[in-house]
Design a protein around this nucleic acid. Structure first.
Lengths: 127, 127
DNA sequence: TTTTTAACTTTATAGTGTAAAGTAATTAAG
DNA sequence: CTTAATTACTTTACACTATAAAGTTAAAAA
């Protein structure tokens, strides 16, 4: 890589668009689940789908709610409290944006696959 | 979603394969950069490509090295110390695995796109 | 009426990302 | 020739945050 290349591509791999709130594994898990169920999912369903503990799920849902990515509906189902979580419109858009960025990461990686197949050397370059 | 569905898909969205070490944004950035340059990148090149500060890059490189995902070569270039970072074979494989999981996230998300296009309702479901 | 279960929420803690400060070695300035 | 500045990092301290353990409320069972 020569200096003029650097100039052109500074920040090329910074992945700015990878929104921290969505990128966190547990929350990505939650959002991706909700993305598949536009009618929403119950607390316990999410817990199972995402393999999260109660406290953990509760905290992450609170964070997602605060960011207006998810909305919660509290009700009762046979005399038991039930919480339904759903993506907001905003959350849906932000997730789609996030995924667009992810696609770039995947695309970048395909380059690696090609290079390794073409038998590139693994020696350090000389000074 | 009915209970038998839950049974079948518990952990469906847990994304276990999203290795924490690689998933972290700054490190994903570093690894994706290195993936594009099999001959390795210099400290300052990485700094630019990933828009990281010195300290930040240094720490993350140390973590990646400890995990045997990246290897470092210390040398000098016109009397200045230079550090060259490169993906290890192990790192390359782990990154490819990681990307495979990412592809699943992207695939999951395409479902959302389809649903939103088919005009699904946004009302909470009745108890 | 006491205990247990269900469905969460709150809190304490351990872990981690980040930038500021520190180090060492070279070059430039006075 | 001594001091200041630059380069190329590394170390440290702090602020943040993910997580699970403990706590809460209410219904159901014993």
């Amino acid at each position: 890589m020569n200096p003029s290349d650097l100039e052109k591509t500074a920040g090329r791999y910074a992945y700015d668009g990878l929104d921290r709130i969505i990128h966190e594994k547990a929350r990505l898990s939650i959002i991706a689940s909700l993305a598949g169920y536009s009618e929403g999912l119950l607390f316990n369903e999410l817990k199972e789908l995402c393999s999260l503990t109660d406290g953990n799920l509760s905290r992450h849902l609170a964070i997602l709610q605060e960011a207006d990515l998810v909305q919660m509906w509290k009700g009762t189902r046979n005399k038991r409290p039930q919480t339904l979580a759903r993506l907001t419109e905003h959350g849906r858009r932000r997730f789609l944006e996030y995924v667009t960025r992810l696609e770039r990461v995947v695309a970048d990686a395909s380059q690696l696959t090609r290079q390794s197949e073409s038998g590139a050397t693994l020696r350090p370059r000389t000074a």
